[in-house]
Design a protein around this nucleic acid. Structure first.
Ligand SMILES: NC(=O)c1ccc[n+]([C@@H]2O[C@H](COP(=O)([O-])OP(=O)(O)OC[C@H]3O[C@@H](n4cnc5c(N)ncnc54)[C@H](O)[C@@H]3O)[C@@H](O)[C@H]2O)c1
Ligand SMILES: NC(=O)c1ccc[n+]([C@@H]2O[C@H](COP(=O)([O-])OP(=O)(O)OC[C@H]3O[C@@H](n4cnc5c(N)ncnc54)[C@H](O)[C@@H]3O)[C@@H](O)[C@H]2O)c1
Lengths: 214, 214
DNA sequence: GTTAAATTGTGAATCTTGTAACGCAGTTCA
DNA sequence: TGAACTGCGTTACAAGATTCACAATTTAAC
């Protein structure tokens, strides 16, 4: 399915989770508003998963939730590794640990001896040397990369070699991994600079509005 | 200009900065590889900014850098506010402070009395009550929103009211701000779940490859 | 001075994403 | 009963982004 739509499906699921047991049914336009998309887009996104709502009642929350989860994750529960327990990693760990019961971060890796063998947020920190061993043993398929930029490519290759097929990469550098490994890059500096650009442009527009009596 | 392309322009600039004074000229395919895009796309992105390279020499690094900065930021230096100095905010602060000389985080806001009036990474933490006052006085146009979800909408509105025209939002909820305010949403949970989805799918593909002798 | 090689800028084609529109099926209320 | 709502599923359309392909241009070499 299209990548963008998958992202939105996760938003629908997350929002539905909080609704569950507060209300049994929901209309497309209600859910759409909570997530911040149009109702048409929501319905369109839902099409491929095959779950059908009813007019005048909308979607059954529990049913849609189950259907979404099945299509997003498949059966079974899934595990995640965190590579790099620095400033960013230590912020992510409690957040992901608290929120996602079905997506557990069960192993972290670092090179800093101070951190190795400690347990943070219920997640053990291993020496980087044990990366392949632990990932293979735990059959971890997803890794979060929060290591310094210069080590990111190497870490990604090692993770992929050990069986990881999905990477969430925070290092601002393109990774080099086999084609079948899915990589999602999150570049926060880019995001901030983008915001700055449009923020400055808005200022100009505002001033232009003044002068042109718009 | 188109939003997507602006993001990439910031990547070109960042990469060029590290190159500056190591080499004076660079070809599109070289820079493209460093950033992780195709050469054709890079050249297309550069078109609107009007900077021209030469065949057999490529782009002049310093010149392109200057031209990019002018088109991305305009003249002057710019300031940023951080709203919410929690786990995430405390990770972002040192990162942005260290990296971006031309984009300085000069004020932070929080409700926690423990944090108020402290100085973290050279950035003073103010009480949330002083948000409007400080933002207006410092003429801050960009704010990073790293507060709990339920307070995000309110914080965004107050920031916008005080003159902020660009928001980098980490709270997983759609903000409600005037149309001219630019909002960039970063949803890390969505990103991780997206990665997990495609990671699981890859496993299936791999197994399918096995069975179908592909 | 001419040729050859390499790279640029850009129009056209392709692919992706989002939006609007429309018919259809339940539901409600007279 | 049936007429009018309402919201769903789907299709058609528009906008945007990416890739392709190639003429134009610059330099180096001979
Ligand atoms: N902190 C942020 O807000 C932020 C924002 C955007 C991007 N990033 C990116 O995220 C990455 C991490 O940032 P950070 O601020 O957490 O850095 P950091 O220096 O605080 O943490 C890096 C951690 O990785 C560990 N490490 C170093 N080499 C390693 C290796 N080879 N294998 C495993 N662990 C290793 C270090 O011991 C340290 O604990 C960087 O690539 C950075 O560019 C960070
Ligand atoms: N930590 C992460 O890795 C992470 C990841 C993704 C998204 N987020 C989102 O980022 C936001 C912050 O996450 P966090 O982990 O830093 O949370 P946190 O609880 O660690 O920090 C929140 C901070 O905001 C302050 N605060 C509370 N109400 C406030 C208000 N009205 N105005 C200003 N400050 C206020 C608190 O005192 C605290 O310091 C949340 O919306 C969360 O969903 C965090």
């Amino acid at each position: 399915m299209r990548e963008r739509a998958i992202g939105r499906l996760t938003l629908y699921r997350r929002t539905l989770r909080e609704l569950d047991e507060k209300m049994t049914h929901i209309f497309s336009h209600q859910l759409a508003k909570m997530v911040g998309v149009s109702a048409a887009q929501l319905r369109r996104d839902l099409m491929p998963i095959g779950y059908e709502g009813s007019p005048n009642r909308g979607y059954e929350v529990a049913g849609l939730l189950a259907s979404l989860s099945q299509h997003l994750d498949g059966p079974g529960s899934h595990t995640v590794a965190l590579i790099g327990v620095g400033n960013l990693g230590r912020a992510l760990l409690p957040y992901f640990t608290a929120r996602n019961p079905h997506l557990r971060v069960i192993a972290a890796f670092d090179t800093d001896p101070q951190k190795i063998d400690r347990i943070i947020c219920g997640c053990r920190v291993y020496a980087l040397e044990r990366l392949e061993e632990v990932i293979a043993a735990e059959e971890i398929k997803v890794a979060i990369l929060a290591v310094p930029r210069d080590t990111a490519i190497d870490c990604a290759q090692r993770a992929a070699g050990a069986g990881v097929t999905g990477l969430l990469n925070f290092a601002p550098i393109p990774l080099e991994v086999p084609r079948q490994v899915f990589v999602e890059n999150v570049d926060l500096t880019m995001a901030l600079e983008k915001v700055n650009h449009f923020a400055q442009r808005t200022v100009e527009v505002r001033e232009a509005d003044h002068t042109t009596t718009d």
